[in-house]
């Protein structure tokens, strides 16, 4: 039963894509789309984990706000230098779902301020951020004065 639900979801997704690309929902077009969707190989849809996927898709909804905010943050930096940090991979992505992993990477890389460059090990992304050179200098100086 669970497999049947997964199959239906995959088919629905493909038919939605077909209708978007052809931009019509006439009966003949839908039938052609159904044939095309059934002809494309299905892959291993049995490993689809909807539980892990739904929160990831919901998290995408707050991307537009982050996008615009980080754009203006990036514009305010006048003297950029490289700054590599490490970020934890989302707990849903580490549980073995390929799609959740992809969505995690997508969310980090899509915003202008952060860029995933590598996967350090199984649960850490290596992320590149832009820092302002003057900010970093003041931080170093304050640390020295603390000592």
């Amino acid at each position: 039963m669970a497999n049947f639900t997964r199959l239906t979801l995959v088919l629905l997704f493909r038919i939605t894509c077909w209708c978007l690309v052809t931009s019509s929902i006439e009966t003949t077009n839908l039938l052609t789309g159904l044939v095309v969707c059934l002809l494309i190989p299905f892959g291993d849809f049995r490993r689809l984990k909807m539980r892990a996927l739904i929160p990831e898709i919901l998290l995408i909804l707050r991307l537009p706000y982050d996008m615009i905010k980080e754009c203006f943050e990036l514009m305010l930096i006048n003297d950029p230098i490289d700054n590599f940090t490490e970020e934890k991979v989302n707990i849903r992505a580490t549980s073995g779902s390929k799609f959740a992993e992809f969505f995690d990477l997508f969310r980090i890389t899509f915003t202008p301020m952060s860029l995933v460059t590598r996967r350090e090990n199984s649960d850490v992304w290596r992320v590149h951020l832009v820092a302002s050179a003057s900010d970093v200098e003041t931080k170093v100086k304050s640390k020295e004065s603390d000592k």
Binding site: M75, D82, F110, V130
Partner: peptide, 20 residues
């Protein structure tokens, strides 16, 4: 003078955010 990473960030601003 900028590194390629900074250029990739600004190209994201232009090509993703600006185009969207």
């Amino acid at each position: 003078e900028h590194s390629i990473f900074y250029k990739l960030h600004t190209l994201t601003v232009a090509d993703s955010v600006g185009s969207l």
